[in-house]
Structure formats: structure tokens, C-alpha cells
């Protein structure tokens, strides 16, 4: 093997290492703790979401978001809808908050009290969608413009927090990940549920099914 070929091989190897480092640097992030039970055959509740939210079927969008999570391969995420709030470990609500920039938020509860998810496991989580949020906004450069799709994205994102996933990347990163700090992956890719990265995240938190 002559020197020229050897150098080309080294260059390719170095390039491959660079790419793997770069991709791992943008992989999923964990909040810290997790649901006390694996979210497998547990319940979620959408009774706190206004059915008609600004013309959008928010309860249906919450169900679609959870269906997307239930469809993740080889994860311990599979939840049933319940009308009994007491039995639920993932509650969905809609609420009016003045800050239209805030599309949704998630709070974590240990028993009846909110807890710090970085240090405390939570027995249930509460996902909110802001009924005042600018769901109908879209960046002029956005490719996807379905408000229901965007709402489903936000609900799936908040459910991701409920499962223990944190935000990833910088605000400006435009990769296709559900757990970016903004909803840009919907605007750019139409993402309405977990990607392979979020699947890997919940697999690490709760283990694989098989």
C-alpha cells in the first residue's frame, strides 16, 4: 500500500471520527430523573385540554401525540387513555398564559407536590399547552403550516419532558429532533412525534422492551 493510499485512508477515518463526535454531541439529553414507574401499560388523561382550542381539536392532537410515542419501536413507552384522572401518570391540560412565545410546558409531581425533576423522580407529570400561544404563527420560511400538526408537535414534545427528556441543541439548530428548545423541527420537517434520537433517549432511561 503506497503512502498516498495510506494518507487517504487516515483522512477518511479522521473524517468518520469527526462526524461521529459531532452527531453524539447533539444526541438526546436527560432531565435527570424519571417517572417512578416505567411508562408501560400506564395511563394518560387528556381531560384538562379544551376540546376546541382556537379552532383546533386539542384533545385529538394530544391523543395523536401519545399514539406517536406508543408507536416507538422497542421502548417501554405504551400508554392507554383514561377518563379517570386519578389513574393517570401523564395529565394533559390547556391553560391561558400571557406569553404567546411559550407554546407549552411540563411540570413534575412527586405525590401531590411539584418537584424538581433534576433530583427527584416524579410519580406523574403534567403537560400544558398554552391556549394563548401563537400556534398559528409560522416563520415565513416554514415549510409546514398545519396548526393541528404544530399543536401535536408541542404536545409530543411536552410528553417527551414527561418521560424525562430535556432540550437539546442550541436555539438555532435546525436538525430534525422533537426535543429542540423551539418547535422548529415541525416548521422545517413536519415532525409531530419522537424521532430516532428521542427513542434512544427513552430506551436509555427506561430500558428496551426486548
Amino acid at each position: 500500500m503506497n503512502m498516498k493510499v495510506k494518507k487517504k485512508i487516515v483522512g477518511i477515518l479522521v473524517g468518520a471520527v469527526t462526524l461521529s463526535v459531532a452527531s453524539s454531541a447533539f444526541a438526546y439529553a436527560k432531565i435527570g430523573q424519571r417517572l417512578t414507574q416505567d411508562p408501560y401499560h400506564l395511563y394518560y388523561w387528556v381531560g384538562g385540554v379544551t376540546t376546541n382550542l382556537g379552532g383546533y381539536n386539542a384533545q385529538n392532537n394530544a391523543n395523536l401525540a401519545m399514539n406517536a410515542w406508543n408507536s416507538t419501536p422497542n421502548t417501554k413507552v405504551y400508554m392507554y387513555q383514561t377518563t379517570d384522572q386519578k389513574a393517570s401518570v401523564m395529565d394533559f391540560h390547556s391553560e391561558y398564559h400571557a406569553d404567546v412565545n411559550e407554546l407549552g410546558w411540563t411540570a413534575f409531581y412527586d405525590g401531590n407536590s411539584p418537584c424538581d425533576p433534576r433530583v427527584t423522580k416524579w410519580s406523574w407529570a403534567q403537560m400544558h399547552i398554552n391556549s394563548n400561544s401563537a400556534i398559528s404563527w409560522f416563520n415565513s420560511s416554514a415549510t409546514y403550516h398545519d396548526p393541528n400538526g404544530k399543536q401535536q408537535h408541542v404536545l409530543a414534545h411536552e410528553a417527551g419532558h414527561g418521560f424525562g427528556l430535556d432540550h437539546i441543541g442550541t436555539y438555532s439548530w435546525t436538525a430534525n429532533r422533537l426535543m429542540l428548545q423551539t418547535s422548529s423541527s415541525y416548521d422545517n420537517y413536519g415532525t409531530k412525534g419522537p424521532t430516532d434520537d428521542e427513542v434512544a433517549g427513552v430506551q436509555e432511561i427506561y430500558g428496551k422492551l426486548y
Binding site: I31, V100, N101, E102, L103, G104, W105, T106, A107, F108, P114, C115, D116, P117, R118, S133, A134, W137, V154, H157, E158, H161, D166, H167, Q181, T182, S183
Partner: peptide, 8 residues
């Protein structure tokens, strides 16, 4: 306590 949100 820390809550997490999604932003536009």
C-alpha cells in the same frame, strides 16, 4: 422547582 417549556 424547574418546569420545562417549548418555545416559538
Amino acid at each position: 422547582v424547574v418546569t420545562h417549556a417549548s418555545y416559538e
